[in-house]
């Protein structure tokens, strides 16, 4: 029992939680933007993979780290454009298109990796983002190390969440975006372009998902390997519901999930880890996520027009 308490009071545990949450926050913000505009983007998993790959490859080829992030974002936006074109003007099933984009983006990344590096057996490394200690704040015990000694991409994730929250609720663009997700007919009757807004949301949202993916290769690890995204995209889909489509609550959800994840890694190293199979610990964050999801999502207000294609002139 004491050992569990030791984990919860250690700065490294909380720092790990914040670090694990960062890519989830990027991708969840991207998904919130898409879903608030009425488009479920199941391409998220594959878009994170392409982001992780494209960002890493750019840096491996000699680009600066921030350019790598930009390349990842552009790659994500490209797949976002594909998703948006199929689901918005063509009005195809968002489930089918989303899964298709995930498969396409994932295999494109793996294929390109093999094509560019045919001879490599162990993944090559790059020099990733280093932690940046914010003066004074980083000296606060526990909190300082957890929050203010992270890499710049982590700060950017939290900055993005604040920006998305502000944009959604405090700007005309955010209002327009929410309205096309709630009642596109109302938006059109007010002279807004439903198609334009939805496509824009999917493209930009996909860009942020890809940045989330690139966090894995440019900040968390230093190389790209297969299966590295490992279902994080699907977790983000659940986090959107958990956060009731609100950026602030989604960030809390991401932190909660990340804390569970960091916790289970440490539990595995305790004596109890010799008795209980490690798969059980791996399972924990998912089980707790599902439980929390059930508890939270009952009173969620789903965007009313989520997954409803809009065709002008239809009655």
């Amino acid at each position: 029992m004491m050992e569990v308490l030791d984990i919860l009071l250690s700065a490294s545990f909380w720092a790990a939680a914040v670090r694990i949450a960062s890519p989830l926050i990027f991708a969840t913000m991207g998904e919130i933007i898409c879903e608030r505009a009425g488009v479920l983007n199941l391409g998220i998993e594959g878009i994170m993979v392409i982001g992780a790959f494209a960002g890493w490859m750019a840096v491996y080829q000699g680009a600066p780290l921030w350019s790598g992030v930009a390349v990842a974002m552009l790659a994500g936006m490209l797949f976002g454009l594909l998703h948006a074109t199929l689901t918005v003007p063509f009005g195809l099933s968002q489930h089918v298109v989303g899964l298709g984009v995930t498969l396409l983006a994932t295999s494109t990344s793996y294929y390109a990796y093999r094509l560019i590096l045919p001879e490599v057996s162990s993944p090559p490394k790059i020099e990733p983002f280093q932690p940046f200690e914010i003066p004074i704040l980083a000296d606060i015990p526990i909190i300082g190390e957890a929050l203010f000694a992270q890499t710049p991409l982590t700060y950017a994730a939290f900055g993005l969440a604040a920006l998305v929250a502000f944009a959604l609720y405090r700007t005309p663009l955010g209002l327009a975006l929410r309205s096309v997700g709630e009642n596109p007919a109302a938006a059109e009757a007010q002279g807004l372009s439903v198609t334009g807004l939805r496509m824009g949301a999917v493209i930009v949202g996909s860009g942020f998902m890809a940045v989330g993916g690139s966090f894995l290769t440019l900040s968390a690890f230093s190389s790209f390997f297969f299966e590295m995204v490992n279902g994080r995209g699907w977790i983000c889909i659940a986090l959107v519901v958990f956060g009731m489509w609100q950026p602030g609550k989604a960030v809390l959800g991401a932190l909660l999930y990340a804390a569970f994840d960091a916790f289970q890694i440490r539990l595995q190293q305790l004596p109890i880890g010799n008795v209980v199979p490690y798969q059980f610990f791996l399972m924990m964050p998912y089980i707790l996520s599902i439980a929390a999801l059930i508890a939270m999502s009952r009173r969620a207000e789903v965007p009313a027009a989520l997954m409803v294609p809009f065709n002008r002139g239809d009655r």
Binding site: A176, R178, S179, E182, N183, A186, E188, A189, Q190, A304
Partner: peptide, 16 residues
């Protein structure tokens, strides 16, 4: 043509 989850003011402001 109103969005139920938005407030009265937001619905009126939309597009203006």
């Amino acid at each position: 043509t109103l969005a139920d989850n938005l407030t009265v003011t937001e619905n009126i402001l939309l597009g203006t």
